[in-house]
């Protein structure tokens, strides 16, 4: 992952480099960690807390703090984000239990089978998600797939295709050259396509049609 605006790269050889930097007290590693995970974990937590922003703030704070303290013991069996999501899920449960807010919020990717697909981005689902869960939920899952891509990929795709930034501008924003930005976008597209196919069992064009685009 890249610390935006600096070009400093972390995680090109996996999450271990970021973890080493964090444990060594490297401020750039802290920035990379925060920039890579804060917004994504927040989006993970918010719908599970009925959209309660204050609760999400507490839970994300607790999640990232716990993740940070556990970095030394992170074994890398799963991706760092997947591991952080597991911590976050537990924090959400604890939060709701402590406040006795009634029924546990169950979302699509809290179902075991679908969660595995979303997290591992490996096993394809057999059913048509757009039809079975509705447009809003499918759109949310598309955004969730973006969140589960390696750090910066989701941002780069949004900057390019939603905000209309040029490859040069994306390179500048990340502090890397145009060629490197081009290469990052290419990898992001591949990862996104694979993620979509794993979750939806369909290609982007079909999903877009299902969403009414």
């Amino acid at each position: 992952m890249i610390v935006p605006g600096t070009g400093v790269q972390y995680g090109m050889t996996g999450d271990q480099q970021l973890i080493r930097g964090m444990l060594a007290g490297d401020e750039r590693a802290f920035e990379a960690f925060f920039n890579a995970y804060f917004a994504r974990v927040y989006r993970f937590a918010l719908p599970r807390l009925n959209g309660d922003v204050e609760a999400a703030k507490d839970v994300v704070q607790a999640t990232l703090g716990k993740a940070m303290r556990g970095l030394a013991g992170f074994r890398g069996d799963s991706g760092l984000f997947t591991w952080i999501c597991r911590i976050c899920r537990n924090e959400v449960v604890e939060y709701l239990r402590a406040r006795n807010r009634g029924a546990h919020v169950v979302l699509m990717d809290d179902h075991a089978g679908l969660r595995a697909a979303v997290e591992s981005i490996e096993a394809p689902e057999e059913f048509d998600l757009v039809k079975s869960c509705g447009r809003e939920e499918a759109a949310r899952l598309v955004r969730a797939v973006l969140d589960r891509l390696p750090a910066n990929y989701g941002d780069a795709l949004e900057w390019k295709y939603l905000e209309g930034h040029s490859v040069e501008a994306i390179g500048q924003r990340l502090g890397i050259g145009t060629i490197a930005a081009q290469s990052l976008l290419a990898r992001a597209r591949v990862a996104f396509r694979e993620g979509l196919e794993s979750v939806f069992g369909a290609e982007a064009a079909d999903i877009a049609s299902g969403l009414g685009a």
Partner: peptide, 23 residues
């Protein structure tokens, strides 16, 4: 196709700046 899909899904929600700063 990619642009069409991303536009139909919409931008991912950005956490409020004050929440980000505080955390």
């Amino acid at each position: 196709d990619l642009e069409r899909l991303l536009k139909s899904a919409g931008l991912r929600e950005r956490p409020p700046a004050e929440v980000e700063h505080a955390v």
